[in-house]
């Protein structure tokens, strides 16, 4: 039994629903914040996730990060040594999807070449008539960039745990692989 700890960077354009996603996930859907509050810097939330079919768990340290460019210099310091990555966009806002490349590049620059498991999340799927980013495109883009993909409606509490379970499982797999490597050294 092991409890791993992962620094999870939650990023994406402002107002796509990062804070809502993080908060709904961490308080098990107890409270959906209807009013928008701008995140300045980083808000830290912590939640432990069990890894299926093991007695292991991953404690996710969610760094819910400001989406406004204004804070980007401070972010670089706060994002040092990340373990996993969650990029969120709004399926009704094409610009927020196009900017995912920029967020990914910023984060990958922090990792100095090591593999960073990541997930791309399309949020606000409840706004059916206003959708402009097709699931197919987004999934293709995620595949090309080595990210897993899922869609959520934080408002309707749909699929909000999925991205974090994906990340916890990926991180756990990395640990197992690394331990195998440690064994093979001697």
């Amino acid at each position: 039994m092991v409890k791993l700890a992962a620094k999870c960077i939650l990023t994406g354009d402002s107002a796509v629903g990062k804070s809502a996603l993080a908060q709904m996930f961490c308080n098990d859907g107890a409270h959906f914040q209807k009013n928008y509050t701008l995140t300045t810097g980083v808000e830290l939330l912590v939640k432990t996730i069990s890894v299926p079919e093991t007695s292991d768990s991953v404690e996710l340290f969610l760094f819910d990060s400001a989406g406004k460019e204004l804070f980007s210099e401070m972010m670089e310091k706060l994002w040092e040594q990340p373990n996993v990555l969650c990029i969120v966009y709004d399926v009704t806002n094409e610009q927020s999807f196009n900017n995912c490349a920029k967020w990914l590049e910023k984060l990958r620059a922090q990792t100095l070449g090591m593999h960073l498991p990541g997930v791309l999340v399309g949020n606000k799927t409840d706004l059916i008539g206003r959708r402009v980013v097709e699931q197919k495109w987004a999934k293709e883009w995620a595949d090309i960039h080595g990210l897993q993909y899922c869609e959520t409606s934080v408002k309707e509490m749909e699929n909000i745990e999925a991205p974090f379970h994906i990340l916890a499982n990926s991180f756990h797999r990395l640990y197992r692989e690394k331990v195998e490597t440690f064994h093979s050294l001697v």
């Binding site: 092991v2 791993l4 373990n83």
Partner: peptide
């Protein structure tokens, strides 16, 4: 500051380089 019960810190000072301690995430 971190430990997996399969790879405990005692492995560092048991005189063998075959056994090891692992960190379990974040620095």
């Amino acid at each position: 500051t971190s430990s997996d019960e399969k790879y405990p810190p005692e492995n560092i000072i048991d005189g063998s380089s075959e056994t090891f301690w692992t960190t379990t995430g974040m620095f």
